[in-house]
Write a protein that binds this DNA or RNA. Structure first.
Lengths: 345, 345
DNA sequence: AATCTCTATGCAAACGTTTGCACGAATATG
DNA sequence: CATATTCGTGCAAACGTTTGCATAGAGATT
């Protein structure tokens, strides 16, 4: 089964020289005479010699593996972020290892526990929605493994962070709904311990406050998950209540799409009877009828920046205690599920 | 910066015993007396000792890293397949490394070239659409690195393969369109060297043949890519021709969705004027209006099976020359973009 | 008292690579 | 001709771990 690879020793034996000479020849060491170098290089090429990364890493006490921990990769959000990360590391000597936590704190902690057995150079993590405790992250920091938190903030935990300005994104979206004439704006929110959800909720609340619109508890409904199915029940609740809203701001596109279909089913006209704005701008969101208005996030860039920061952390020499904190701006994308602002033209 | 980890030697020094004894104590070697074992284990626990995977792999001449090469992870298809793969390996000692080829043969070959520097235990690959040459895969096989090809077949290249019965999936879909009364069925296909596309095309052709419907070249249009945008032009071409089809079978959901929107824009009624069937059954496909009829593929299971076969290949002892060839069945999912079969009730 | 058998532990080699130091030979300088 | 310098190469250690073999000490048998 196992055919062993060509090693430096094999080349040395064949050429009747020492392993050190082979090693130096391959590195173009100036002290060697060129005939030796050439002989070595020719044979190395012919035998398809590849240095053993494990031996090197052992010697150097380093690793070239980066771990990326995400809650899920089937959502466009994280798969695009991972693509951004990958696109940075692909041209480096590092390899990325993707780990999926399935939005579970336990799995996330287990992943980190397993990672500590393997040598890793650094970790990028978008915490699971059920992660409330950060000791597993602290353990990494204590072992001097650079850690970058992205997308989802861990409040009260210090680390390098790359986030999106969810608050402003939500604020802008809700304020737009108000300007377009909506007065009873509901919000479908998600898991309450996720910073992204909370910031969007706060943006929603503050936009209403600023415009002197009362905040109604009955108009803030929490969906039980992130998928399409999870949007049906909250929407039905809203549209069958005795205080029917005239707009829904959903915490993500999937829930917004689901709200849209549910509203249609209940014979609401969109956006006349009920306007809808989502969050994420997934690639297919513009293909619904009407096309979904939503808040775009620079996911790919966020992935790239996170990766760049990690790379810098791994390679920097000086010890520094300062943590970077980067926040990306969102963009409101207006399409068919929101009304136009009156008299804007 | 670098705080070195606790090693077996550190423990040995502290306890004034040899490294071998520590190693044996941690493995519960029967020759050691229990006081020694306990002392070692207690200290190892206290100091949070973790074996150095690199040293072990170097010693054993093995690796616990599996590479997964996919053309793209932002599509639901591959992200779901990768999730299936991950779910198998997560409970094993292996870690997976995700590599993205961006549908490019060059990048794919480069990835394999880079992988050969790192020690890897095995490779799972869904070849890029531009991959016509398989020498990079052969190189892996020559080095005894187990290789599994999934989703996309490489005709003329022998390896373990886990595929989907695209032919039957397409055949069924087209035959359904015929049974529901369509007679002028067009097909939007994709890159012509992709086995999946070709098998779907062949399924389309054979379904027409079987039902004595002439195959019109003008009704087979190749989209230039896989994204939504790539579906617009082919659809316009079809619907503005002087031989307008009454159904479109698209090679994937994205193109189908795009065809749907384009048809709507041109005032066609769906499915009365033009029926549409896609391929993939992406999670949001049922949320369009009308909901998209499509062909479901067991992607997640395909990922899992591929991973299981690889695991078996890596761990098996005996050399065997036989390649496994697994084919999954698809399922036709009928929703709003296709007509009902007359008199079926 | 001499030999034998356990028991518990240590030694050293091995995995593949790099690199500081040393060394022999050839060449240059006095 | 003796010494110094340069050139090309090899030795050995190091990284962390495992494991076959050796061995020291204790107790048992003759």
């Amino acid at each position: 089964m196992k055919k062993t690879r060509v090693t430096i020793k094999d080349i040395a034996r064949e050429l009747k020289i020492s392993a050190s000479t082979v090693s130096r020849a391959l590195q173009d060491h100036p002290a060697l005479k060129k005939e030796t170098k050439e002989a070595v290089k020719t044979l190395a090429e012919k035998w398809n010699y590849r240095p053993n990364a494990m031996a090197l890493n052992l010697l150097r006490q380093t690793s070239t593996t980066i771990a990326v921990i995400v809650p899920d990769i089937t959502s466009h959000f994280f798969s695009a972020a991972v693509t951004g990360i990958q696109d940075i590391f692909v041209s480096s000597e590092y390899n990325i290892m993707i780990c999926i936590s399935n939005e579970s704190y336990e799995e996330e902690a287990l992943i980190i526990e397993n990672l500590s057995k393997v040598q890793i150079a650094g970790v990028l993590v978008a915490p699971a929605s059920t992660t409330l405790d950060f000791d597993h992250f602290r353990k990494l920091q204590k072992n001097d493994i650079p850690l970058i938190i992205f997308d989802r903030d861990c409040e009260g935990f210090e680390a390098h962070k790359v986030l999106v300005d969810d608050y402003s994104g939500a604020f802008e979206a809700v304020e737009y709904l108000i300007k377009s004439g909506c007065r009873k704006i509901a919000h479908i929110t998600g898991a309450s311990n996720l910073s992204t959800n909370n910031h969007r909720l706060q943006g929603y609340i503050d936009a209403l406050k600023k415009n002197n619109i009362p905040i109604l508890e009955e108009h803030i409904i929490q969906a039980s998950g992130f998928t399409h199915e999870d949007g049906i029940q909250p929407t039905e609740l809203l549209l069958r209540s005795n205080n029917i809203p005239d707009a829904i701001f959903a915490v993500n596109d999937r829930l917004a799409v689901s709200a849209m279909r549910t509203a249609k089913k209940l014979k609401f006209r969109i956006p006349e009877d009920i306007a809808i704005i989502g969050f994420d701008d997934e690639p297919h969101s513009s293909y619904f009828t009407p096309a979904l208005s939503t808040v775009w996030q620079p996911v790919y860039s966020m992935g790239m920046l996170s990766a760049r920061i990690l790379l810098h952390e791994i390679e920097k020499e000086e010890e520094s205690k300062e943590f970077r904190h980067e926040v990306f701006k969102t963009e409101l994308v207006l399409r068919g599920t929101s009304k136009k602002i009156q008299g804007d033209f």
